Simulated assay, not measured.
Amino acid sequence: MPDYFHGYAVVGLVAVVGVLFVAAAFGAGRLLRPEAPTPEKLLTYECGVDPVGEGWAHTQVRYYVYAFLYVVFAVDSVFLFPWATVFAAPGFGGVTLVEMFVFLGFLAVGLLYAWKKGVLAWT
């Protein structure tokens, strides 16, 4: 039984040492940094331009929808590369091909749904 918990003890010890290292680094940074707050330093910094007006900006939701669709299809396309390497291995041909067509079918249904809902219309 002690050998079973040895692996967990090592992982726990590494986690504790990591947390202590980060805490020590932040503590040293707090102790060593100069602190001279001025009104200019307390302003919000945005790309080297002084802030003008209020900080609230309106953006359209459709840009987030496009970004979300891109992320979904980009992540799904990542699964195509390992599939291509497994498909080339002997003994995986038919089963892997069917599984990938099912996977691509789900992607096609999602894309068709987004198209029918008008999400892909740029207007």
Rank of each mutant, 00 (worst) to 15 (best):
D3H: 11
K116F: 11
G91Y: 07
L69A: 03
L111I: 06
T96E: 11
T44C: 02
F103M: 07
L20N: 08
G7R: 05
F21N: 03
V65C: 02
S77Y: 11
T96D: 11
Y66I: 06
Y4V: 10
V75C: 08
V102T: 08
F101H: 07
D76R: 08
L104F: 02
G53R: 07
V19A: 15
G91Q: 06
F68S: 14
H58F: 14
A24Q: 06
A24L: 13
Y8M: 09
F5W: 15
H6W: 12
A23P: 00
W56L: 14
T38I: 01
G118H: 05
C47G: 04
Y70M: 12
H58D: 13
A108T: 10
L80M: 13
T96S: 15
R30A: 13
F73P: 03
P51H: 09
K117I: 05
P51Q: 13
F73L: 13
V11Q: 08
G29W: 14
A114P: 02
F68I: 07
E46S: 11
Y8F: 14
A108P: 00
V98P: 00
L31H: 10
A9P: 00
G53Q: 09
K116V: 10
P37Y: 01
V14C: 06
L80R: 03
F101D: 02
G27I: 03
V17A: 15
E35T: 06
V11Y: 10
V119S: 04
G7K: 05
S77L: 13
G7V: 08
L107S: 13
V86K: 13
Y63Q: 09
R33K: 15
F73W: 02
Y70F: 14
Y113N: 08
A121H: 13
A114Y: 02
A88P: 00
V86P: 00
F103A: 06
T123S: 09
Y63H: 12
K117Y: 00
A108S: 09
T38D: 01
V61H: 04
L43T: 06
G118S: 04
G94Q: 07
V61W: 08
A15E: 08
A84I: 12
V95K: 10
G53N: 10
A114M: 04
A25C: 02
W56R: 11
L111N: 01
Y70G: 10
V61N: 07
L107T: 05
V102Q: 03
G27M: 06
G29R: 09
A108G: 04
F106A: 09
V109D: 01
V119M: 12
Y63E: 11
A23N: 03
A74Y: 08
G94L: 11
Y64C: 09
L112T: 11
W122Q: 09
E54H: 09
G93C: 00
G110K: 05
L112N: 05
G105L: 04
V17G: 04
V119A: 08
G105N: 06
V14P: 00
G91D: 04
V10I: 12
V17T: 12
V16F: 15
D76P: 01
G118R: 05
E99R: 01
A114W: 02
S77P: 00
V78F: 14
